[in-house]
Computed example of a mutant assay.
Amino acid sequence: MPKTPAYLQLATILRTQILTGDLPPGAKLPSETQLMKQHDISRSVAKWAIAMLKSEGLVVGRAGSGVYVRDGRRLIRYAHGRDMRNTAGTTSPFARDAEQAERTPTWEHDSRHDVADESIARRLAIEPGAPVMRTAYRFLADGEPIQLSTSWEPLAITASTPVEWPEDGAAVGVVARMDLIDVRIDEFEERLTDRPALPNEVAALDLAPPSATVWVIERTYYAAGVPVETATIVLPRGRYELVYRVPVH
């Protein structure tokens, strides 16, 4: 019977320590040099074992600091009713998801005026080249990057209103913002696919190439059948649980 490769043996040892809590969330893994001495292995064996744990989402590397055990708590994304108007507290769906998982939500954003390409124009039912507000987000939970999103809104709806700039206006969250200008969102559509992570997503989400995969959600909000916002949301597999609850009529 062939012998198990040394890097798989080491990965098994470290994985067991993580899953049993001997290496708890936030704990720093021994360095490659320390692993070489502890297990009498080569640097390449230590490197491959750590790479495997990264690909499994168990550990994360921090530039200039080392490799740490990842917090294994997944965020639960409740798609049905996630923007219900009677929900107390924050109107940000991401902030609600993070807080329910007892994690601290933060996000980065970049908003700018743009024009709709053919794909976005089709999703928003507007002409290609029509002016839109484009906002790129990176969401973090306890400082860990956990979601990317790019949204587009027709400036024909929001231009010169208090909510034209999504993160610098009088409300947070698409539903709350549109309510403020009397555009009442009454439904949304989501299309869910998965694919390998793109290079920029690997970097932004601190994923382990080449095996990293992501969920991609194309979400569009409607008001009386008219698209008022569309977004492409990228979620790392293994960090999210997606929950859909749909009423049956």
Results as ranks from 00 to 15, higher is better:
Ser119Asn: 11
Arg134Pro: 06
Glu108Cys: 09
Gly129Asp: 06
Ser119Asp: 15
Arg123Phe: 08
Gln100Gly: 04
Gln100Val: 10
Thr135Val: 15
Arg103His: 03
Asp110Ser: 11
Glu108Thr: 10
Arg138Gln: 10
Ser119His: 13
Ile126Val: 15
Asp117Arg: 07
Thr104His: 13
Arg112Glu: 08
Gln100His: 11
Glu99Ile: 13
Phe139Glu: 00
Arg103Ile: 09
Met133Leu: 12
Ala130Asn: 03
Gly129Leu: 09
Leu124Gly: 02
Thr135Ala: 09
Thr106Arg: 10
Leu124Asn: 05
Ala130Ser: 15
Gly129Phe: 09
Ala130Cys: 07
Glu127Trp: 06
Glu108Ala: 09
Ser119Pro: 04
His113Met: 13
His113Trp: 08
Glu118Ala: 14
His113Ser: 13
Ser111Asn: 05
Pro105Arg: 00
Val132Asp: 02
Arg123Thr: 04
Thr104Trp: 12
Tyr137Cys: 03
Asp114Ser: 15
Ser111Ala: 13
Pro128Asn: 10
His109Pro: 04
Ser119Ile: 14
His109Val: 06
Ala121Ile: 08
Glu118Lys: 13
Arg138Ser: 06
Asp110Gln: 14
Arg138Met: 07
Tyr137Asn: 01
Ala130Tyr: 03
Arg112Asn: 10
Asp114Arg: 05
Ala121Phe: 09
Arg138Tyr: 01
Pro128Lys: 11
Glu108Gly: 08
Gly129Glu: 04
His113Gln: 12
Pro131Ala: 13
Glu99Asn: 10
Arg103Cys: 06
